[in-house]
Amino acid sequence: MSKDHKSTGPTQRMLRVGELVRHALASIFARGDIEDDAMRGAVITVPEVRMTNDLKIADAYVMPLGGQHAEEIVAALNRHRKFIRGQVAPQLNLKFAPELRFFVDDTFEEAARIDALLRSDKVARDLQDDDENQDRDENQS
């Protein structure tokens, strides 16, 4: 890729490595290898892992089942990220294991917020007004 070519998104390699890291994290979380009171009994999902271009940093977006105590769990994961990196490294076929950073995945929350907005009375009225205007315009043609 030339220097002037601007990338519009993640490369296939970034996506592939991100998916490998995601699977490795999910496996570690399922086994319960991390001992921390904040995580006791938590079932953690890993919807997405985003890799930097150089594959040195993996941003893992996680969410505990039910969404409870998400911030505390993410803080615990970040406290144990060196241990987790050591568990992930053997499962990746990379020269260097990426640094891990954990974040709360808010995509479900954002989707619920957008859904609630779309179902609001104001949006329903606006959509109804648009339909009436469109019908009127079609009848005048």
Rank of each mutant, 00 (worst) to 15 (best):
K122A: 13
R113G: 06
A124S: 14
F96H: 06
H80P: 04
G32I: 07
N93W: 04
A97I: 02
Q128G: 00
D105W: 11
L117I: 09
A24H: 08
D126K: 00
H23R: 08
S27A: 02
A24I: 07
L20H: 09
D126G: 02
V104N: 08
A26C: 01
D121M: 07
P98N: 01
D126W: 01
R31T: 05
H80Q: 09
Q91M: 11
D37H: 07
E19I: 00
A58F: 05
G86E: 02
V74H: 01
L118N: 12
D106F: 10
L55V: 00
A60K: 03
N78M: 11
V123Y: 10
I34R: 08
D33F: 13
F108L: 15
V49M: 07
I73K: 10
A116W: 12
E99P: 04
R119E: 14
E48T: 13
F96E: 05
A26R: 01
R113P: 08
V62T: 12
A26M: 02
P98Y: 01
H69E: 15
N93S: 12
R119T: 02
I84P: 04
D36G: 04
R113T: 14
R50Q: 09
R40P: 01
A89G: 14
L94G: 01
A60C: 02
R113L: 13
E71K: 04
E19V: 00
E109C: 02
G86F: 05
A116G: 09
M39D: 09
P90A: 01
I57D: 10
E110G: 00
A30N: 06
L25G: 12
H23Y: 02
Q91T: 12
R79T: 10
M51Q: 06
F83W: 15
T45N: 03
D105L: 03
R101C: 00
T45S: 05
L127G: 10
D121K: 09
V123C: 05
T107Q: 06
V49F: 10
V21H: 09
P64H: 10
R85Q: 15
L15E: 05
L65F: 15
M39N: 05
F96C: 03
H69Q: 15
P98G: 02
D129F: 05
R119P: 07
I28S: 02
